[in-house]
C-alpha cells in the first residue's frame, strides 16, 4: 500500500466505485430474475448460464446505440443530467463503513453527508425533465421535486433517531455503538424498529421506487423525466437508480442493523449480507405493491410520517435520558 494520502484516496475511491458498479450490474440481473419468478416467468435465461451474462450484453448494447438529443432540448443540461445523477448516487459510498478498517472517510458528519447527497438526487432528475423539453418529462420532474423535498423531512428525522441513540453523527461511530450496546432495530424497543421502517420507506421515495414512483408512472407519463433519453444516457439513469437503492439499503443496514457487527463471519461479509437482504426486501416490495396516487403520497408524508418521526425523535431522547 502506498503512503501518499492523495494516491491512496484515489485508489480507494476507484476500488469502491468499481465494486459498486459491478454490484449494480448484477443486481439488475437479480431483480429481473426475482421479478420473473414473482410474475411466473423465468427472467433472463439466454446469455450465459442462468442468463448471468445478461448485464454485459445489455451494457454493450446500450453503448452501441445512438444517443439522441431532441432538437429543441437544452443540449448542455440534457447531457449533464445523467452523469450528475450517477455521481450523486455513488457519492454516498464514501461514508459507508463496510468493516471496522474499510471505510473511505469517517468524517464526523457522515450521516448528514449521506442525507444531503440523497436529498440532492431529485435535482439532476428535475434538470433532465426540464432540459428534455417534453411535457411528460417536465411533469415527471415536477413530481420528483415535490416528492423529494417532502420525503426528505421524515427521512432526515428518522435517520436522526440512531444519531440520538448513539450520540454521534459519524457512520463508523453509530456502528461501533451498536456493536457494544446492541442493534438499534431491537435495542431501543419500538422506537428503533419503527424508525427503521420509516427510513426504509422514505429511502424508497427518494430513490423513486414503487410504491413511490409517480415521477415516472409509465401509465401516465410514458417514462417521466427519462422519456427522451436513449442508449448509454438512459443506462446511466438506470444505474443511478440501482446504485441509490443499494446504497440506501447499506445506509439502513449501517444505521439500524448494526452495520458490520455480527458473530463468526468477517465484518465485511455481514455488511454485504445485511445490505443484500434489505435490497431483496425492496425488490420484493417493488413487484408486490401498487403505485400510490399523488395526493395519497403527500397525505402519507405530511399527515403520518412527519408527526410520527417527530414522536420517535422525542421517544429516542427520552430513552437516552432514562438509560443514562
Amino acid at each position: 500500500m502506498t503512503n501518499d494520502p492523495w494516491l491512496r484516496a484515489l485508489l480507494e475511491g476507484a476500488a469502491v466505485v468499481t465494486a459498486l458498479m459491478t454490484a449494480v450490474a448484477w443486481i439488475t440481473w437479480l431483480e429481473r430474475k426475482i421479478a420473473g419468478r414473482i410474475q411466473s416467468r423465468l427472467g433472463p435465461t439466454m446469455v450465459g448460464p442462468f442468463g448471468l451474462l445478461q448485464p454485459l450484453a445489455d451494457a454493450v448494447k446500450s453503448m452501441q446505440k445512438e444517443s439522441i438529443v431532441p432538437r429543441d432540448a437544452d443540449a448542455l443540461l440534457f447531457w449533464l443530467a445523467p452523469p450528475l445523477t450517477l455521481a450523486l448516487a455513488l457519492g454516498t459510498a464514501a461514508v459507508i463503513p463496510f468493516s471496522p478498517g474499510l471505510l473511505a472517510s469517517d468524517v464526523d458528519i457522515g450521516v448528514l453527508y449521506a442525507l444531503a447527497l440523497s436529498g440532492l438526487l431529485s435535482f439532476p432528475i428535475w434538470i433532465a425533465g426540464w432540459a428534455s423539453n417534453n411535457k411528460y418529462s417536465l411533469l415527471g420532474g415536477m413530481r420528483m421535486v415535490a416528492q423529494g423535498i417532502s420525503y426528505e423531512i421524515p427521512m432526515v428525522l428518522s435517520a436522526l433517531v440512531p444519531v440520538v441513540l448513539a450520540g454521534t453523527l459519524s457512520m463508523g461511530g453509530v456502528v461501533r455503538h451498536q456493536a457494544e450496546h446492541g442493534w438499534f432495530v431491537v435495542s431501543a424497543p419500538g422506537v428503533g424498529f419503527v424508525a427503521f421502517l420509516v427510513f426504509l420507506l422514505t429511502a424508497l421515495a427518494e430513490g423513486n421506487r414503487i410504491p413511490f414512483d409517480i415521477p415516472e408512472a409509465e401509465s401516465e407519463l410514458v417514462a417521466g423525466p427519462t422519456t427522451e433519453y436513449t442508449a448509454i444516457q438512459w443506462s446511466l439513469f438506470a444505474a443511478a437508480e440501482y446504485a441509490h437503492s443499494l446504497l440506501a439499503s447499506a445506509i439502513a443496514a449501517t444505521l439500524f442493523l448494526g452495520g458490520w457487527d455480527g458473530p463468526v463471519l468477517p465484518p465485511a461479509v455481514w455488511m454485504v449480507l445485511k445490505t443484500g437482504a434489505l435490497f431483496l426486501l425492496i425488490t420484493w416490495l417493488r413487484w408486490s405493491l401498487l403505485r400510490l396516487r399523488s395526493d395519497q403520497l403527500m397525505s402519507l408524508c405530511w399527515k403520518l410520517l412527519v408527526p410520527l418521526t417527530l414522536l420517535l425523535l422525542l421517544g429516542a431522547g427520552t430513552w437516552v435520558t432514562l438509560a443514562t
Binding site: L115, A116, L117, G119, W126, V145, I149
Partner: peptide, 10 residues
C-alpha cells in the same frame, strides 16, 4: 447542501 437544495429547487 441539505437546506439550500430544497430552497433552490423550490
Amino acid at each position: 447542501v441539505l437546506l439550500y437544495t430544497g430552497g433552490v429547487l423550490t
